[in-house]
């Protein structure tokens, strides 16, 4: 089997205590692509945003399960975060920076904006009362040449 193709999936309860576990497990899996520290930080932030959204919005802090699948194909990592929560009524509006449906919980509406800023691609699919699937993609190592030049 090709060393550079790899798949991993984890599923866990929707509790805030699992947020750090989620981002660390994805970061550890991606580590074999030799990402830079900045790339790892980007992935951790994006995973944290998606998982936090499932907990707060998808399951509204009630019981539920969150699944993260991670595919590595060559130098590209694809992360899919799935919940079976309430779903998003208007995805376009939800993805606007500063839009939040929960200002009373001190949310600032930056989650999707950070996922977009730190990953190369972001897709959101959702169904009311069905759940939400967030797919994020990032090419690892595309800035490494530039880095090497800067260091030399």
């Amino acid at each position: 089997m090709d060393n550079n193709n790899n798949y991993m999936s984890v599923e866990f309860d929707s509790i805030s205590n699992n947020e750090s576990f989620a981002r660390v497990v994805v970061a550890a899996f991606v580590a074999r692509l030799n990402p830079t520290l900045m790339e790892i930080a980007d992935i951790k932030t994006a995973v944290s945003e998606a998982v936090t959204n499932s907990i707060i919005h998808g399951y509204e802090n009630k019981e539920g399960r969150i699944k993260i699948e991670t595919h590595i194909v060559e130098d590209t990592v694809t992360i899919i975060v799935t919940d079976n929560g309430v779903g998003i009524e208007n995805i376009e509006r939800a993805m606007e920076p500063m839009y939040t449906s929960k200002p009373e919980l001190e949310r600032s509406g930056m989650g999707f904006a950070f996922m977009e800023a730190f990953m190369d691609e972001l897709f959101v699919e959702s169904e009311m009362s069905g759940g939400t699937v967030v797919t994020m993609r990032k090419v690892i190592g595309k800035n490494n040449e530039k880095w090497d030049e800067e260091l030399n």
């Binding site: 981002r23 930080a41 951790k44 932030t45 944290s48 945003e49 936090t52 919980l105 001190e106 949310r107 600032s108 930056m110 989650g111 950070f114």
Partner: peptide, 13 residues
């Protein structure tokens, strides 16, 4: 070493 949008919300609040 790590902060996400929840940290932004905490500071704004």
């Amino acid at each position: 070493t790590f902060m996400d949008s929840s940290g932004i919300g905490l500071i704004m609040g």
